[in-house]
Amino acid sequence: MRDKVYFTSSGVSCAAWHYPGTNGGCVVMTGGFGVTKEPGTDRFAERFAAAGFSVLAFDHRHFGESAGEPRQVARVRDQLDDWRAAIAYAKTLPGVERVAIWAFSLPGGYIVQLASEDLGLSAAIAQSANVDGPTVTRHASRYQSSGIAVRLLGRSLLDVVGSWFNRPPRLVDLAGPTGTVALLNTPDAQLGSDILSPDNRYPDWQQAIAARSVLPAALYRPAKYAPDARCPILYVVCQDDKSALVAPTLKAAATTPKAAVLQVPGNHYAPFTNAHEQVVEAEIGFLHANLAAAPAGTATGSN
């Protein structure tokens, strides 16, 4: 059971699903970069709710059912503000005493930065997280020709200039095969549509993003915040992840004061497919240890 709710972030109305819980803990969630709340969170949110946790799964401004114009524009700064507003709102929900955060891919990197802030969080889960944009971008370039990379850069710069004159965004697909202009051309990124929205289960999900959003995302490096994390973080790492690499995430985990690491076989979307049961059970165990009761002195998780 879930209800549609709304909260305000910097004057913009953000839409969310609220799953009421019974154990005092609430998990605030979003999908990946450009991924709306339903394809990005439904499968995990339902399991968390069944385990007794409240869930607040929301759309960033400019995406999904949230307000904000122009559409499909993802600014890292604005999305982090949306997270802070969602966390503050979650604390006002009936029965909520403690809050955790969960996200994957680039917003999985947001988790690391937010965990370093004084937001009163009890736990955080960074799943298949991109914690080092420059390193991931260099690796992703292996799946692009130099000509395609130049076209993507050119479209991004033209879109930035267009934004100065209030022109509509120039969109790029979230993923595409090698030889096409897209945010990512990595092999696992190309699987995202079929995995997150099988049989077009979520037809309203627009799988594109404003080109002006690409460069800031490529430069974002939240791993630098890991040593300052104030709450336990569970890092879920996919061993064959080509879209959010293993090495930077393990390095960030090694510098996180209260870190737990779960490594699973498979690609970027393994937590949604073959590794789903292993991952969701580990995440629920981590949440029970750090969210459903008074925060423990050490993180609990699987290695």
Rank of each mutant, 00 (worst) to 15 (best):
Ala254Trp: 01
Val131Gly: 05
Arg2Pro: 01
Gly301Thr: 06
His60Met: 13
Val27Glu: 03
Gln239Cys: 07
Ser105Tyr: 06
Pro222Ser: 11
Thr137Gly: 01
Pro257Asn: 02
Ser146Cys: 08
Gly25Ala: 10
Asp82Lys: 11
Asp204Leu: 12
Pro271Tyr: 10
Ala189Pro: 06
Asp59Ser: 06
Ser156Asn: 08
Val73Asp: 00
Gly147Leu: 15
Pro248Trp: 09
Gly32Ala: 09
Pro134Arg: 10
Ala226His: 01
Ser9Asp: 00
Val76His: 02
Asp240His: 13
Val181Tyr: 09
Ser156Leu: 10
Gln263Val: 00
Asp78Lys: 04
Leu119Arg: 02
Asn290Trp: 00
Arg201Gln: 13
Ala259Asp: 00
Pro20Thr: 09
Gly68Leu: 04
Gly147Ala: 13
Arg61Val: 09
Leu119His: 02
Gly21Met: 04
Gly133Leu: 07
Thr249Ser: 11
Gly133Trp: 03
Leu191Met: 13
Tyr220Cys: 03
Leu171Ile: 13
Leu215Tyr: 02
Asp188Tyr: 12
Glu97Ala: 15
Tyr6Glu: 15
Thr255Met: 08
Tyr225Glu: 00
Ser243Lys: 05
Thr298Cys: 05
Ala126His: 11
Ile195Phe: 08
Gln144Trp: 11
Ser243Ala: 14
Leu174Pro: 01
Ile148Asn: 04
Leu196Arg: 11
Glu117Asn: 01
Asn267Gln: 06
Ala275Gly: 03
Ala115Gln: 00
Arg151Met: 13
Ala124Cys: 12
Thr255Lys: 14
Ser54Ala: 15
Leu183Ala: 12
Ala299Phe: 03
Ala217Ile: 05
Gly52Thr: 08
Gly108Ser: 07
Ser105Cys: 14
Ala247Pro: 01
Asn166Phe: 11
Gly31Gln: 04
Asp188Gly: 09
Ser193Met: 08
Val55Leu: 06
Gly301Ile: 07
His288Thr: 05
Ser128Asp: 02
Glu97Met: 13
Val96Glu: 02
Val27Cys: 05
Arg84Met: 07
Arg47Val: 12
Gly176Gln: 10
Leu93Lys: 03
His139Phe: 15
Val214His: 07
Gln263Asn: 10
